[in-house]
Nucleic acid binder design. Structure first.
Lengths: 203, 203
DNA sequence: AATAAAGTTTGACTTTAGTCAAATAATATG
DNA sequence: CATATTATTTGACTAAAGTCAAACTTTATT
């Protein structure tokens, strides 16, 4: 994860992150200032990777615009484990929270505008702003529910149901992300997904 | 979720929960006292349900002993979404955190000794003990990683790999939980699981 | 201890989705 | 704008896992 961390974000540049966090709980001035001063704007072109297996995920990212995916190699095939668009946080969570090497890759599916926050600055924020623990706790609650949901999709009985469930929960991504990623995300082959879509369009 | 909440736990009865939490972060006396006074011991016999679909998950449970599972009905079949043994927390998280009706059921796989904490008492604890937000945040981090892991299992390419992955991460449950639950947990049929086990025993 | 119930294994057969290959369509790039 | 690249669709075939049924084993229950 080699990132060009020239200078930190302006309050303008960090405003979308601030907005998202303020919807969880009201924020005070100092925290808003801290956030701007410790986050770094970053552009990532489509196809580029943010994190490779073996690296440690030293930063967590807020997605200002674009789509990213996380994937794991299983033999020769890739398994997409999540797909995230603007307004959400992105990291290899297990690598980030334990600061150990990642099994996962993170890649831009579209050109992305991100905001980076380092692990150490985040830890500092927990200490400096006890309030931030509450925000983080609530965000984790939400992300935990999402993760459960992803687990459920892949266990559904047949391919139709999996895709249907995906459409219900992340339908906005259906025409924004190549089929191969959606297919591996829901645990089927892209040819199978293509056939399901062909069927569905007659309904 | 009709629970016999006669009287709250003694410090002795809540000690295993206190021990688990204290491994996340050191606890102060008041918090330990609060925990004992607001948790309620509860026995659940094998096969009994702790939560049914349509109910709201008003309590979160610490498992002192035993095994529980959570499942969702998909048509006629049940999908086991997690299996948890002693030392961990149990709830229908999405129902609990948003206090809305659950899609899931929670059932004892073995006779269980639990400790119940209500949603309101937990919210109070967040307010009374800001420190508790840090603990909860760290627990969510861990549970999030577990949930990601469950999602990965179900997406693996073939049945062998799924079971192998299960053995790696929850092998201690392999001979404690009926095959049908493990099978639906990893997203295969119990006959398929039985055949995999037959093969593996020759290796 | 005897019986019932629940759990597991095995076999025969079916279905679904995976694989491989090629054609077509849509997007990116010089 | 032309060409290359990437994405999607479709077809024919295969393999893996699902289904149904029955036997067998283990665990509860009276």
């Amino acid at each position: 994860m080699e990132i060009l961390l020239k200078k930190h974000a302006t309050e303008e540049e960090s405003s979308s992150l601030i907005f998202m966090l303020s919807q969880v709980l009201p924020l005070n001035k100092q925290f808003i200032k801290y956030t701007a001063e410790h986050t770094f704007p970053l552009c990532l072109k489509k196809g580029k990777t943010l994190l490779k297996p073996g690296e440690i995920c030293t930063h967590i990212f807020f997605v200002k615009s674009g789509v990213l995916r996380c994937f794991i190699k299983d033999e020769k095939k890739e398994i997409t484990t999540w797909i995230t668009a603007e307004g959400e946080m992105v990291a290899s969570i297990s690598s980030f929270i334990y600061q150990r090497t990642s099994m996962e890759s993170i890649q831009a599916v579209e050109d992305c505008d991100l905001l980076a926050l380092s692990y150490t600055d985040m830890e500092q924020a927990y200490l400096k702003f006890p309030h931030f623990n509450i925000i983080a706790r609530k965000l984790y609650e939400k992300y935990y529910v999402d993760a459960e949901n992803r687990a459920l999709i892949a266990r559904l009985k047949n391919a139709q149901k999996k895709y249907h469930h995906f459409l219900n929960f992340q339908g906005h991504l259906a025409n924004r992300v190549p089929l191969k990623y959606i297919a591996s995300y829901i645990g089927i082959r892209l040819e199978t997904l293509s056939r399901i879509r062909a069927k569905r369009s007659f309904l």
